[in-house]
């Protein structure tokens, strides 16, 4: 995905060409450049759509200082894959969650896309999706993280996510009075 910009290219020609280009160039916090389809970027990210509409896209690479190159590569990868996939019924239909809002189930390729990520890459990606206002990618990544919590005891959840238990013994004892079952791994 990394793009080597032709240095000999004249500034004028480039400016003229920019309007007609069907890709945008994004620059990660560590200075790497990525190219992504303008149509997909505008459709999947409210932030990029706003920047494209507002003309604040820099042809030399739009600075995204909050996003590292690994996360940005995944974002761009997701946009490209999304552009190539045919939306199926899963995108339109929604399953009713126990809690409140209905969530769209991830599609097969989206599942595979997040399954191959390491924990760190996944958390980087969820933040990048949030920053760029990519609702669909945020849905998919949040879904994946919630899957990692399912059916686990509090101890197991702490282990998976490397969380420090900051409940005191007294607090836990009090909660146990109310919610004993939640402590068991059954």
């Amino acid at each position: 995905m990394e793009v080597d910009k032709g240095k000999g290219e004249a500034e004028e020609t480039r400016k003229v060409a920019e309007a007609d280009r069907d890709t945008v160039t994004l620059k990660s916090s560590d200075g790497k450049l990525f190219e992504v389809s303008k149509e997909a970027a505008a459709r999947l990210s409210t932030v990029l759509a706003g920047m494209i509409a507002g003309g604040s896209i820099d042809d030399n690479g739009t600075d995204l200082k909050q996003i590292g190159s690994e996360a940005l590569e995944n974002v761009v990868d997701y946009c490209n894959k999304h552009a190539n996939s045919i939306p199926s019924a899963a995108l339109i239909s929604s399953s009713i969650s126990f809690n409140t809002a209905p969530f769209k189930e991830p599609e097969e390729w989206e599942r595979k896309f997040v399954d191959r990520l390491s924990h760190d890459a996944l958390f980087d990606l969820v933040e990048a999706a949030n920053f760029l206002g990519m609702e669909r990618l945020l849905d998919v990544t949040c879904h994946k993280i919630s899957e990692m919590m399912k059916g686990k005891s509090p101890d197991q959840i702490r282990e998976v996510f490397n969380i420090k238990n900051d409940y005191t013994k007294e607090e836990l004892e009090e909660i146990r009075q109310e919610l004993a079952w939640a402590f068991y791994d059954d």
């Binding site: 409140t100 945020l138 919630s146 919590m149 399912k150 686990k152 959840i157 939640a182």
Partner: peptide, 25 residues
């Protein structure tokens, strides 16, 4: 993760899983 992001993750859990997760910290 910001609390906002954490909430959008926890919101997807069934109540029993949500209560177990609340016991993490």
């Amino acid at each position: 993760l910001t609390e906002e992001l954490l909430r959008s993750i926890l919101r997807r859990l069934a109540p029993a899983d949500l209560l177990r997760a609340a016991l993490a910290c």
